[in-house]
Computed example of a mutant assay.
Amino acid sequence: MRVLRVEGGQVRSGGEELAGPGAPVWIDLAPTAENMAFLAARFRFHPLALEDAAHEDQRVKLEQYTDNLFTVVHRISPAPDDSELLTHEVDAFLTAEALVTVHAARIAEVDRVFERCATEPELLARGVDFALYLVHDAITDAHFTLVDALTADVEELAESVLAERRDESDQELLDRILTARRQHVLLRKRFAPQREVFAALARPGQALVRDQTAIYFRDVVDHAVRLTEEIDTGRDLLASAMDAYLSSTNNRLSSVMTRLTLISTIFLPLNFIGTFFGMNLDILPPRLAVPLVLLSMVVMPVAMYGVFRRKRWL
């Protein structure tokens, strides 16, 4: 647990001893049993909200209570080996004088905003709702790098699908497309409701978010909308890439089957000649039989190949 408290134009930092009433405070803590008990005793938050904050499996949401509101947003980041996307939950309680942020993992954006507020007293002096805006804005903006990287990967996938020669096999390319689709589905699932949460905080006339702060939340809404639109664009590109991949695969399969069919067609009359004259070679004069059969077996496939080339079947 770490606490910031603004009094007399100065910021004091410390532990729970600074969490008393009478001044704006920001409490940042992990969802341990001891910390949850402290919040229940100090702020008397609703037990259901405390239960949600204690377990990192909540959907994105905003819940309004009598004297506080509770928000859940997600910070999505790639795994260290880029094999998957990891979701970290950031819960926040907002009262008239206190902001309480709860998260199990270290969130770099929360740390940076906390350090800013510790060194710039005017930030917390503008209200704890403004500190909540700073947290949500930092978390939202951090996703632009992730979404831009995914968009670049989708564009590279589309180019690979359309390329005549590929550096990777069809199975590897298909695995990359399916992985990118799963990532975009996850991002869309997380960001769409977060946009609604920020929109609710941006509405004027709320008791705990002042109108001058609600204006700043509109900027967060705008960033969330841009992220969602870019994700939707990436999903459309992935759908087009998948269609192009399937079409390319089907075209190559049809081309291979066409060639195999033509080869079989060429050898079919040769098989007929070989079997027919193998049983009936004595019907021809001995000096004529063998040369005629050999000549037929040479001329016929050459002639058929010429016909197929003229008709552009090969």
Rank of each mutant, 00 (worst) to 15 (best):
L94H: 05
A53G: 12
T71P: 05
T71Q: 02
D82Q: 11
H55D: 06
E56T: 08
D91E: 10
H55V: 15
L86V: 14
L62R: 06
V60G: 00
L85Q: 09
S83N: 03
E63F: 08
Q58D: 06
D52N: 04
T95A: 08
D91R: 01
V60D: 01
L62Y: 13
H55W: 11
V73E: 02
D57A: 07
T87N: 07
F70I: 13
L94K: 01
D67M: 03
S83I: 07
L62C: 04
H55E: 13
D81E: 09
V73Y: 14
E56P: 11
D57H: 14
V90S: 07
F70L: 10
P80Q: 07
D67L: 09
D81V: 05
D52V: 08
T87L: 11
T95Y: 12
F70T: 05
A98G: 00
E56D: 12
L86P: 04
A98Q: 02
H55G: 01
L69T: 11
D91A: 05
F70C: 04
T71G: 03
E63L: 12
V90M: 13
K61L: 15
L62H: 08
A79W: 09
E63M: 03
A79M: 03
E97C: 01
T66G: 09
S83R: 13
E84K: 09
L62A: 07
T95V: 10
E84V: 06
L94T: 05
S77V: 15
A92C: 14
E63R: 00
A79T: 13
A92M: 15
H74K: 14
T87F: 12
A98F: 10
P80T: 09
D82E: 14
H74P: 05
T66P: 00
F93V: 09
P78M: 11
V73N: 01
V73P: 10
E51G: 00
L99Q: 05
Q58Y: 12
D81P: 00
D81M: 04
E84H: 13
V90Y: 13
